[in-house]
Design a protein around this nucleic acid. Sequence first.
DNA 1: CCCATGCTTCGGCCATCGCCGAAGCGTCCG
DNA 2: CGGACGCTTCGGCGATGGCCGAAGCATGGG
Lengths: 244, 244
Amino acid sequence: MVTVAAFARTAALVGDPARAGMLTVLMDGRALTAAELARAAGVTPQTASGHLAKLAEAGLLTVARQGRHRYHRLASPAVARMLEGVMAVASMPDAARPAATRAPSIRSPGPRDAALREARTCYDHLAGRLAVAMADSLVARGAVELGEDGGALTPAGEVFLRGLGVDLDAASGRRVFCRPCLDWSERRPHIAGALGAALLATCLDRGWLRRSEGSRAVAVTPGGRLALGRAFGYRQACACGDAA
Amino acid sequence: MVTVAAFARTAALVGDPARAGMLTVLMDGRALTAAELARAAGVTPQTASGHLAKLAEAGLLTVARQGRHRYHRLASPAVARMLEGVMAVASMPDAARPAATRAPSIRSPGPRDAALREARTCYDHLAGRLAVAMADSLVARGAVELGEDGGALTPAGEVFLRGLGVDLDAASGRRVFCRPCLDWSERRPHIAGALGAALLATCLDRGWLRRSEGSRAVAVTPGGRLALGRAFGYRQACACGDAA
DNA sequence: CCCATGCTTCGGCCATCGCCGAAGCGTCCG
DNA sequence: CGGACGCTTCGGCGATGGCCGAAGCATGGG
């Protein structure tokens, strides 16, 4: 039985601006140190420490100590799904949201912003223009079906993706491991869930994409430009996310 | 762009105990008056009024005035999904959750509790033992596939459900409109999303189930007992939810 | 061995926000 | 038309909880 108190406590944990900032940053799926999270949230380390202790104790985060660092990451896909759900509601076009008290949210990414819109990680899968293009291409080719409530990989899609080297068995024995996830920047769904994770893993394994240091942006490699263009008809909008 | 501030504000809205209680009750999908919600949350009407105004302004609820009553309901499926996500995390078996400060959550349903566990509404679909049994039966028969990340209706399942009179076209043109939703009492997934809504609608239309007055429990009618037993192999655990 | 670094705990300050009593509007009914 | 009812607004009280400075443990490196 889930008590209303536990329900409220969980939501309240996400509802604090500082903690929300940390969780937002952790949505890229990586493990970050307390100091990095403190900077991201705009608070001092001691304040962040308190927040992180609460989040960990409630089971939203897991911590791994490595030397004198403590790495924090989202505890489970369920937490990521919850955060996605809140995002979806928060981004809904609702009645007159006064843009008055607009805190500087996250330190302005500046020129990196374009790279973020192009391709970035979203917990364990891809997001951005690349991810939306991949989803569109897969739907157009009849490889996956995507709806408001879920998605599915078709038999034809299974063949196609295996041909690309995507490891479909690692995820689960069934073909229903697909889930739409609303893209912040594109405002269109991309592919999340186990299939989304497998796609990202493949792109990284084959050297098509490379994670950026200290950012959730991912860069398309020269080889990736070729392979992604061929497989999904993807063409970069700009060269800003280029991998040297 | 979704600012971190908006994200936190949305979660904080859910994070207050009184508002959480109201939202929990509204998860049954019905529209309730401010007074009913005040009772459910255990606060006075004027306090509830303030909360409801905030929830409506943020787009979580929609209000419909009818005479001197104001009926409140969840604004969209997206809101229901968000609340489900929070529930899923809140119900996770995490580190030592002290059961000390256990508020009386919701007024104890007493004898009605058994009926709630048997069959109840969950936003726009069914939950409880009946819903889990239906999901199990559909999976066993190969009509739907359910995974952690989503679900899908198979071609065979489409035929089967059309035979039962389920209106599949009303939901969407595709067959991916299925979604797992963790059942509180059973701790196992049942079918949500557009398919779950269509199933509930069919059960009500055909007189197999009947909503109870003032409760989210639904009662199985004599005809429903026969039909649900035949279609899903369902047998009531007790007669407590009986429809006179 | 000692210092630098990363993180935590403690104590006190302060703002936010939920809460209710009282009073003010609309609506419905006798 | 007057009273009952549903709901809202207003004002003040109180508590929860976030914030930082300072100090306390650990770990790792010189």
